[in-house]
Design a protein around this nucleic acid. Structure first.
Lengths: 334, 334
DNA sequence: CTGAAAGCGCTTACAG
DNA sequence: CTGAAAGCGCTTACAG
């Protein structure tokens, strides 16, 4: 049986209120009293019961993060940024991983973090208006990362501009037949970024009077294998593209696999631009759009803490710039 | 202001005890009463205060997992297995990421999960005897994955046997000059698996009357870049090895980088065996020892739930077998 | 089957 | 600077 505040008070010969004051760093305690109480706390190894504290303060000192596909590098990198900031703040981080539509519905339908966490970070997942209303009614501070919602702070990158950057780069390399392999566009588990990137792709083409060809736009799925399969389809087209822009590095790796299978050389026969700048992209020599993933996580977590700690509830929309990283898959020489 | 059990009781014209019984699925409630109360709970959107529940039941329905290096694929894969099982059980998962020795000391020194979680999963990190005693005194159910501790259940793979498997395979391919690139052997942040794998490496050599050469054993660090640098050192030896066994796939990828830099062909000029079987290993054609990472996470989580839900406190030591996956980096033809 | 009451372990005015 | 008391919102014997 663990010790309670009463045990400490009794041994120190004081009331529990005084022990509580010491616990909470209240200044109104005589140094001598404080020292005596601290000594007893230490001797007993006393720890305040968190549930009791939570009950009376109505604070859990925990933050929930809802994120999809825990194992995908992009989400993990963002999570790492979140974790670093949250851990340092003394808050604890509860994770809710979404891998299926059912889980998604469950989490946003029942809001299981309500009453267990002080705040919420939602990563990449878009909320429907009913879900958003429910979240709003629950009065839980929340921040969105890599997605956004009216009335809430968000941290995003400019995906339209990122895609434009990628496609402009290919156009400058002389390409006119440029394909786009998108991520999944599922209405609830699909991520809004894919729509924005498609828009950027189209805008760049239009800006250079290049046609937007339906057969060059492929709504693939996430992952390397699907990127490979989709690229093979594109290569089998009567008039195959000479450049492929993908919505993720993982898909781009798959495109490279496909080229290799066909005996084609990436960057020479077909140019490729990815999106994310995963660690592997550097090794493989993939030209890509770099998103500051860990930074996105950090900024989002800081926004939430700013709300929780400083009462700063004004929603802010932060857009972090992306950068084009040129590598071998769009090498000009070849 | 959120509703409380009193609000529900008042509107239903019952006592709060009856509402509590409905909340906790107690059978001793008249169906009609139950229906009326449920209707009001639904109408109000009432949710029981978790802190109050925790206080009186002394259960948090949360589990903490302490893991190192949140972004490394091995730990993420195990975490995913843990998360899947925990989420399904209705428990919440709190993560403590350890990236520095200071964080490690902090977590195992102050045990911040005490009183906030019902159980603990420790991944890959070895505990010192003082830390272990402290954990034991705290009476917190715990399970160790990819590491172990006396008095606690653990889920591990047989790392000695795994390394033997790898080295035997190289010996059968005719190699006699076989190097081993280990993971870091830091006493607290180093992982015990590296020691076991080194032992397996040595046992396999000895079993075939091959010498254990000190210059062939390299205590590298984790990660691809270090694997590459270490491999370059080995290749520069007066009598370089013809085969390299690494303690992780990531290091093996670095070895491949090194060979490529020297114009050598993996599997032809120098054979390589990794450890982990990451997704990328298949694409790169790396022969490796497969560890069932997600399964390890699942089994560990199930062990903990078995303790929490069924009161099964008998420590069990589970050793999951590993398998050799043959690929191009030890291809016999070349 | 149901309710009044005690109690979980804290924090926080209130009084001194 | 300190203590007694109220109260946070539940669960759980106890009595009926």
């Amino acid at each position: 049986m663990a010790y309670t505040i009463k045990d400490v008070a009794r041994r120190a010969g004081v009331g529990i209120a005084t022990v509580s004051r010491v616990l909470n760093d209240s200044p109104n305690v005589l140094p001598a009293t404080r020292a005596r109480i601290l000594a007893i706390i230490d001797e007993l190894g006393y720890r305040p019961n968190q549930a009791a504290r939570q009950l009376v303060t109505a604070r859990s000192h925990a933050i929930a993060v809802v994120l999809p596909f825990l194992t995908r590098p992009f989400f993990i990198e963002v999570l790492r940024g979140i974790e670093a900031v949250i851990a340092q703040s003394g808050y604890q981080l509860i994770i809710f991983n979404v891998e299926t539509i059912e889980q998604r519905e469950h989490y946003f339908g029942t809001l299981p973090f309500l009453g267990r966490t002080d705040g919420l970070i939602i990563l990449s997942l878009p909320l429907g208006s009913i879900e958003l209303q429910r979240l709003h009614d629950a009065e839980m501070p929340a921040v969105f990362i890599d997605t956004s919602a009216p009335g809430y702070s968000s941290v995003e990158v400019d995906n339209v501009a990122g895609a434009q950057l990628a496609v402009e780069h290919l156009i400058q390399r002389g390409h006119t037949r440029i394909a786009y392999i998108s991520g999944p566009l599922h209405p609830t588990l699909g991520f809004p970024v894919n729509r924005d990137r498609k828009q950027g792709y189209e805008l760049a083409l239009l800006a250079h009077q290049l046609p937007v060809r339906a057969e060059y736009i492929r709504p693939g799925g996430d992952g390397r294998a699907i990127g490979c399969a989709t690229a093979l389809e594109l290569l089998d087209l009567p008039e195959p593209p000479t450049a492929i822009f993908t919505a993720s590095d993982e898909q781009a790796f798959g495109v490279i696999d496909a080229l290799t299978m066909r005996g084609l050389v990436p960057g020479k026969d077909v140019a490729i631009v990815g999106y994310d700048d995963l660690e592997l992209a550097r090794y493989i020599g993939l030209t890509t759009i770099r998103q500051p993933m860990e930074q996105m996580g950090r900024e989002g977590a800081e926004r939430l803490l700013d709300n929780l700690l400083n009462g700063n509830i004004e929603p802010t929309i932060q857009v972090i710039p992306v950068t084009l990283i040129e590598r071998a898959t769009t090498s000009p020489a070849s």
